[in-house]
């Protein structure tokens, strides 16, 4: 059965940065995420390194294991193969870039083990 895709990854989607600036999703840069998180009182950017990519429960899904932050917390997420992550210094990347381009018209690189993705954590966690 078809899974609803997040609408904001569609090429041309308008994204509001923390300072109010509007950009298209395909024009976002690493600095946009870093600067938005710096302004945010609640959110903090973490570096999440792809450790493993395995098949998921369904043919269109993958399980990605990340090593998150300085503590290298191991976190697994199951996503559709076309789900894009933002890789530091590289931009949008997914496990199946052809499918991401087909569905979202969003140019993507291939997400690989060792890639470092932008992720978020809460500030002030103790």
């Amino acid at each position: 059965s078809p899974v609803a895709l997040p609408p904001f990854f569609m090429r041309g989607s308008i994204i509001q940065l923390a300072d109010g600036e509007l950009k298209r999703v395909e024009d976002l840069k690493t600095e946009d995420f870093i600067q938005s998180a710096e302004i945010s009182s609640e959110l903090k950017i973490d570096s999440s390194t792809v450790e493993r990519i395995d098949s998921g429960q369904s043919p269109n899904a993958v399980v990605i294991q990340f090593s998150v932050g300085e503590l290298k917390a191991q976190v697994c997420v199951e996503v559709l193969v076309e789900y894009p992550f933002f890789v530091f210094g590289q931009g949008w990347s997914s496990c199946c870039p052809d499918r991401t381009t087909q569905l979202f018209e969003l140019s993507c690189a291939k997400l690989c083990v060792g890639d470092v993705c932008v992720s978020l954590t809460l500030r002030g966690m103790r």
């Binding site: 994204i15 978020l120 966690m125």
Partner: peptide, 19 residues
């Protein structure tokens, strides 16, 4: 035209102990 917040594009993966 809908406008989406920047943080909806980034996965929320894990809380950290620091900060």
């Amino acid at each position: 035209v809908p406008v989406f917040p920047w943080h909806s594009l980034v996965p929320f993966l894990a809380p950290t102990q620091s900060d």
